[in-house]
Amino acid sequence: MTNGSARSGTTRRWRQRPLLVVLAGLLSSLVIVFYGLACGYRLNWTPSQSLGLWRIRPLAGAVATGDLVFVCPPDTPRFREAHMRGYLRAGLCPGGYGPLIKTVVALEGQRVEIGHKLEIDGRVIAHANVRKSDGRGRPLSSFKGGVVPAGHVFLHSSFSASWDSRYFGPVPAEGILGLADAVLTYAP
């Protein structure tokens, strides 16, 4: 082996080292992401709740009003349109949607009235004005109101531009993944 070929082998190893470091970093990142998903951790990038890292905690009993929950939206024409408009992110829920983080404000059997504001059994819900158009000026139609059907919940977010049950109506309670706990979040 000549001195030149020895240097060539050493140079080749030094050139491969950054690639190995990058591959090890990518593999580590993938392991962390999959472990986090398996343990119930999710990132929220939508402003309807604080941005950042959240955890899904299993329900200890029945869902109650005031519970902040992760919920998979049903795969309906209304949600497909919302996804096309950019209201929903892609994710692992049926239909390819990401779960929503919303507060349960009404349970089955409760009466929902929607006008310029939202009322549940005659009680006005704060921060729940109903918009006629979205941030791009596209028309929004609201839920007409009525009694929340059996097996369903009515969801709300106090973020003024949130797309919630004011617009899509009650959703099946079976889509609730668990309670939403903020881990490391930032409220813009």
Rank of each mutant, 00 (worst) to 15 (best):
M1P: 00
G4V: 12
G4L: 10
S5K: 03
R7K: 03
R7W: 13
T11P: 00
R13I: 10
L19P: 00
V22K: 07
V22F: 14
V22W: 09
G25M: 10
L26W: 13
L30P: 00
V31C: 06
V33K: 13
L37D: 14
L37I: 03
L37Q: 15
C39Y: 12
Y41C: 07
N44F: 02
P47A: 03
G52W: 08
A60T: 00
A62T: 10
V63K: 05
A64I: 01
A64D: 02
T65A: 06
T65M: 01
V71G: 00
C72T: 06
R78T: 10
F79P: 03
F79Q: 05
R80A: 08
A82P: 06
R85I: 09
L88T: 06
C93W: 02
P94K: 12
G96A: 05
I101L: 04
I101M: 08
V104D: 12
V105L: 05
G109V: 09
V112D: 07
I114P: 13
G115R: 14
G122W: 13
R123F: 11
I125G: 05
V130D: 10
R131S: 11
S133I: 00
S133T: 15
S133G: 08
G137H: 02
L140P: 01
S141N: 12
F143A: 00
F143Y: 15
G145F: 01
P149W: 09
P149Y: 04
P149S: 10
H156Y: 06
H156T: 02
S162V: 03
W163T: 00
S165C: 01
Y167N: 05
F168S: 07
G169Y: 09
G169E: 05
A173N: 08
A173V: 00
G175E: 02
L179K: 13
D181C: 02
L184K: 12
T185E: 06
Y186L: 14
